[in-house]
Design a protein around this nucleic acid. Sequence first.
DNA 1: AAACTAGTCAACCGCTAGTCA
DNA 2: GTGACTAGCGGTTGACTAGTT
Length: 313
Amino acid sequence: MVRTPCCRAELGLKKGAWTPEEDQKLTSYVNRHGEGGWRTLPEKAGLKRCGKSCRLRWANYLRPDIKRGEFTEDEERSIISLHALHGNKWAAIARGLPGRTDNEIKNYWNTHIKKRLIKKGVDPLTHKSISANLQDIPEKQDINQTIIMSDDGPDHSAKVKKSARFLNRVANRFGKRINQSVLSEIIGSGGTHTTITTSATVDSESDKSASSSFAPTSNLLMTANGNATSSPSAFSESSINDRLMYWDKEDNIEFSTFLNDEDFMVLEESCAENNEFMKELTRFLQEDETDNKEMMPVNEHQDSFEDIDNYFA
DNA sequence: AAACTAGTCAACCGCTAGTCA
DNA sequence: GTGACTAGCGGTTGACTAGTT
């Protein structure tokens, strides 16, 4: 397939830094006509730029909803958590940080976070301790492998471990059915400096799917003192901001019915604002309750992990 | 003061996927 | 089914700046 080049230098198209005049032209054109039609936009707007360049300039710099300035600690934690899940999928990471562009996040990762992680002895690629990487690591991680890195004291560490254990149970139980975005929300909230590796549960297909019921927009995190923090998210309208007492309006299900006290506490701390996830989890737990199936310990699920691996292979 | 080096980040490049005629 | 086109993505480049020698 032969493509006409987008940017033809012979047409005298300008490259390099944008001038304020060019910005003004582009902004007023997009404000009048909306985004899109980038190929024909430069000519209509009186710009000697290629459409691609205009789109990037708008998307990364001129868009009114772009948040500029220093990244906050919360944002940085979000980036690390999301990078642990998505890798170098900067656009996916950017979706979890409203107002930040993929380009900005990518730059910030490469110039700040990466170095800081290395300094702390954490491999920025694997999010594991560099010393751990030197040991014999199996090629394929199983779902049970939970990497905990916490410097908030033994109490927090224990809490995180407990949380991680429960989340792994959730992942274990629902790995095949639950959307990765939803799981990412919870795993991302696992605690400060915590990475939970759940490779077998990653539903990459559903993550890509535009028809996904859950958008990876929530930015739920645990702060250093264990309190949940959240940026504006799709779940912000939730009526359960402070405590985990989810009642489904139609089915009248009390969420706590399905969990023992310990798990209920852990879940409450981990996903206090994630209404959509709780709805989903409630549904699954109710199914399981109906089926009267006994929950197997995580380490007895190796076969199903293999199935999941095969499923997503 | 000049030359050099390292860090930062906006912009570009090459590619893929999706859409439409 | 094919080709043209658009939009979006991740990796890379290079201009600029600040710090160091």
